[in-house]
Design a protein around this nucleic acid. Structure first.
Length: 505
RNA sequence: GUCUUGUUAGCUCAGCUGGUAGAGCACGUCACUUUUAAUGAUGUGGCCGAUGGUUCGAAUCCAUCACAGGACACCA
């Protein structure tokens, strides 16, 4: 039985007593006329009044009891609604005959959601409170709350029962409000720039737009497998072919890979595509976007992150190859020679898969020696073509692409490029990815003939970018695990004990 | 996927080199009409994550499993 815990049994009994006494423990009759925050604001003048009270004012507030101090014929309680915490004073003689002793003291307790009517006053210790003249139970909590001082700290409980975490930890609510705001601001920023928000499929016949392993599901009606999307890129570009000139999508992507502090199987990103623009324009709009976020979130330009301090007013730009030497300390003669890179990596006790091409090895060097050193926002540009299957080649040097990734606090936050719109080149890149797949790279990009055909109708020169929203929120809230910015992070299901199954049978 | 550290009351945690389970909060009862983690008295509460093994005896030692945290690998 779910509710066989003795504390729960006790509370169920109290609910039953209340019902018998004529109080519905799950009443739907809320008469709240203000929030805690508004109450505290509106009545901030009470401290200056005679007797520090005003019995002519009348408010009804609602909230969950977080603390209860019963002192004989009077009690203090702290109730909390979404906007804040309020102390209420409940005295026997201000309530209907018998209510305080028989109902309030005996059957209402921490965790319950109540509604309190009364007038504002300030206590002897100077706390603006509410003097109760009426008190009603709205919802009986039959499970007890965690401990009042330490709350719930066990990460497993916090993630599995996020509702409990939210009840107990005000900071957690704050983080998710910031997350919501970031998404809302992002939407407004791009809408104001004339971008159109679109929705593209979550279930793809071919998992494309990134190098990653997909989740597979099955469509019974058609008898075919579908892949949860790993990126919306190829669909958004089809829309550019179709004539939309600026589109964006904020939504989930799914990747069937490991889980850790920065990876959840489903994660949120914004991708936006902008016709008649290049990656140079994306660098500018990205700076503007960050400025907009910081302004509207009221954040200082210098933010702490772990033991770092990030200066969001200091955006710099470094080509990838250059960063290997200037930031990574890799000798310049090494960076453009496959064998020398392998030898160099081996000398640092790093082994690489055989058969990697020059671009992939340069990417290895970057990951090993540069990435974690990029604290202030840094655009790393000019990525090798081998590791950029969807990016446009540079006109000056066909071996590199018009691409950048943005790194902040040692992490990739955004990936952007002038889009490849030459259908013949795109076909060739897919074929090269196919060869990489043959030689063991199971995350190489899939061939997507339908997408190539779309390009063959002509896609205007376009720039496109993806920004990881979860990681961005982590950065802005100084959270170090992606689970702390996801309301319901992925968790393994808990096994049902065999014993219990037998009992139920 | 690998390594590593955890898992004891509703919650937060003790429990030494094996000897039959502890605290605080919460809850029950009593006292208390201005408290701030209220206070004082008193009481209830546990298949010590699961399954095996070693032992006269296991929360404690060993093995396997489950779940979680951290690190690494892969990735965003």
């Amino acid at each position: 039985m779910v509710f066989d815990n003795k504390f729960i049994q006790q509370r169920i009994e109290k609910a039953e007593i209340l019902r018998k006494e004529g109080y519905n423990p799950y009443s739907n009759d809320s008469k709240r006329n203000t929030t805690v925050e508004k109450y505290l604001n509106v009545n901030s003048d009470i401290a200056d009044k005679e007797n520090q009270r005003d019995e002519n004012r009348h408010y009804i507030v609602s909230g969950r009891i977080k603390l209860l101090r019963i002192m004989g014929k009077a009690s203090f309680a702290k109730i909390e609604d979404e906007s804040g915490m309020l102390q209420i004073y409940v005295a026997r003689d201000n309530l209907p005959e018998g209510f305080y002793n028989n109902i309030f003291k005996k059957n209402i307790e921490v965790g319950d959601i109540i509604e309190v009517a009364g007038y504002p006053f300030v206590t002897g210790k100077g706390e603006l409170s509410l003097h109760a003249t009426e008190l009603n139970l709205l919802t009986k909590a039959i499970s007890p709350l965690p401990e009042k001082f330490h709350g719930v700290t066990d990460k497993e409980i916090r993630y599995r029962k996020r509702y409990l975490d939210l009840i107990m930890n005000a900071d957690v609510r704050k983080t998710f409000k910031i997350r919501s705001k970031v998404i809302s601001l992002t939407r407004h920023f791009f809408e104001d720039k004339g971008f159109l928000e679109v929705e593209t499929p979550m279930m793809h016949p071919i998992a494309g737009g990134a190098n990653a392993k997909p989740f597979v599901t099955h469509h019974n009606a058609l008898g075919i497998d579908r892949y949860l999307r790993i990126a919306p890129e190829l669909y958004l570009k089809r829309l550019i072919v179709g004539g939309f000139e600026a589109v964006f999508e904020i939504n989930r992507n799914f990747r069937n890979e490991g889980m850790d502090a920065t990876h959840n199987p489903e994660f949120t990103s914004i991708e936006f595509y902008w016709a008649y623009k290049t990656y140079r324009d994306l660098i500018e709009i990205t700076k503007e976007y960050f400025q907009y976020l910081f302004e509207h979130l009221n954040l200082p330009t210098r933010l702490p992150y772990a033991d770092m301090e990030v200066n969001f007013a200091n955006f710099t730009e470094v080509p990838l190859i250059e960063s290997l030497t200037t930031i990574g300390g890799v000798p310049p003669e090494v960076t453009n020679d496959k064998d020398k890179i392998v030898a160099f990596l081996n000398s640092k006790n790093i082994t690489v898969k055989p058969g990697m091409n020059l671009g992939q090895l340069q990417g290895e060097l970057f990951d090993e020696f540069v990435e974690e050193k990029l604290i202030d926002p840094t655009f790393i540009t000019e990525y090798p073509v081998e590791i950029s299957p969807l990016a446009r080649r540079s006109d000056e040097n066909p071996e590199i692409t018009e691409r950048f990734e943005l790194f902040i606090a040692g992490r990739e936050i955004a990936n952007a490029f002038s889009e490849l719109n030459d259908p013949i080149d795109q076909l060739g890149r897919f074929e090269a990815q196919g060869e990489a797949k043959e030689s063991g790279d199971d995350e190489a990009h899939e061939m997507d003939v339908d997408f190539v055909e779309a390009l063959s109708y002509g896609m205007a020169p376009t720039a496109g970018q993806g920004i990881g929203i979860d990681r961005l929120v982590m950065l802005l809230t100084n959270e170090h695990s992606i689970r702390d910015v996801l309301l319901f992070p992925a968790m393994k299901p808990i096994h049902v004990e065999e014993k219990n199954i037998e009992e139920e049978n």
